[in-house]
Design a protein around this nucleic acid. Sequence first.
RNA 1: GCGCCCGUAGCUCAGCGGAUAGAGCAGGUGCCUUCUAAGCACUUGGUCGCAGGUUCGAGUCCUGCCGGGCGCGCCA
Length: 553
Amino acid sequence: MTPEQLRDVVRTAVAAAVDRGALSVEVPGEVVVERPKNPEHGDYATNVALRLAKPAGLPPREVAERIAEELRAHPGIASVDIAGPGFLNITLAQGALGRIAVQAVTAGEGYGHTAVLAGQKLNLEFVSANPTGPVHIGGTRWAAVGDALARLLETSGAEVTREYYLNDAGAQIDRFARSLLAVAHGREVPADGYAGSYIGEIAAQVLAAEPGLLDRPEDEQLQVFRKRGVELMVAEIRSSLAAFGVHFDVFFSETTLHQSGALEKAVARLREQGHVYEADGAVWLRTTDFGDDKDRVLVKADGEPTYFAADCAYYLDKRARGFDRVVIMLGADHSGYVGRYKALVAAAGDDPDEHLEILIGQLVNLLRNGEPVRMSKRAGTVVLLDDLVEAIGVDAARYALARASVDQQIDIDIDLWTRRTNDNPVFYVQYAHARISSVLRNAADLGLALGEAADVDASLLTHERENDLLRAIGEFPRVISSAAELRAPHRVARYLEELAGTYHRFYDACRVLPRGDEEATPLTTARLWLCAATAVVLRNGLGVLGVSAPERM
RNA sequence: GCGCCCGUAGCUCAGCGGAUAGAGCAGGUGCCUUCUAAGCACUUGGUCGCAGGUUCGAGUCCUGCCGGGCGCGCCA
């Protein structure tokens, strides 16, 4: 019996107690069944009696007793104890717990998939690093976390579009183009330009693709460097992300918004809603009506639209494409945008709490020799996605970035990571998978197969370490769904570390395969299923994080 | 000054209002003629920044302080 099934059993028990007049309460739609930390508190515990005590007008322990009477009648439940203030501690019948292993193996890749977010169509925008340079380590964090979140949401039944907003218009692209032009002519880059070594490489590639370019008028050259340069930069960004295992469904060009007249339409729509005014020669959006600190300029006095105007158009474009919810991941250095963004959604007539979700993640600090590394794109002193991958590999990089809460700043000590010590928990988790794979290979060599699900006697799994493992495996679907709902992929990583530890302890205490000339027993088969189930969960969980599950290490 | 994030073991960090606050690393002691020792067992280590409040119950929610990070342009 899975925790989800038990939850229904508990709810049904409450309903039964109400039916026979033992309780006069409204049956709750959801009841909480959780795994107690203390094994003496049974396989599962529920606080439903504590919740119902007040509405029932009875002491919590009395409510618990009346529910317990119903639960004890269930064949899958061995015992129910009332503990503490009124918790119901439930121990499952022998075999009911063991079936979890069979269910996990049978479900395979589908184990952990739920429908809790079914029917939601959402747009997840992340990374969106400017195409004026390679993806640096900050963007890499959002690549790892954003992609994991996308997989998590999909696993929970949502329809997700991964989107990357390309800021390929505006002054910074001008600076980028002028930097390319300067380098191509052997001149110093402008003071406000970009100076990384990649600028020279991109410039050379542009010249290779456009022979004779330097003989044309300089303003024409600038246009070519701008167009070709951005194309090449975007190609490099996509290639880095692809090597990192991150693929976007849509690369959305800001320029297309300018060219299609979407900005003017957006301003017009906001004007119709009555939130636009003119002052000091500029066009403003009255975002203060919706909680922003100050009003924002849409069109500058010189007639140029602001970046914010493009944001408005972009948001409206996403909504027009049919997304129920627009999710944007931003770094903490952009946290000031939340107010104006929420306000623009409200000004457009949408609900800022329902249609827009902005996830702010804290920044990644780099330490070298224990000292923070100052990062500057201009000076070229940045650590790039490619550098991180080269130093520690995709698996370790993705795992390390995804295992911390996004609310937490990460300090990455470059020397530590480049040293390749086993401080990285990803090895611990992957090792558990490799170990299981080895056991299953050895079993196959001995001619032992899992066989049919119906033939497994799961009630033989009675060892405490086996029960621990079964309970952990049973948690997986809810770990996935709650991590998806909370937008917290790091929970999956933490869970996998626990699961790996639980498996290692099982492995240490419980021999799976027969030794020497011993015969395989039904317990051997049951334990093989337990191993296979653990491997399924490790694979699926690592898959959510975009980390490989090696069969050998 | 205002807004957001953080403050939990020596270090890095988990902990969606539940029971005795956890993991890894670091320190100590043991376990490989037996399925992968990148492992396991035992052990050392805590005023959950401080002070109030909410309630059956607070590391978790609210308020105020203290300390650290980030942000507050007709830049992008």
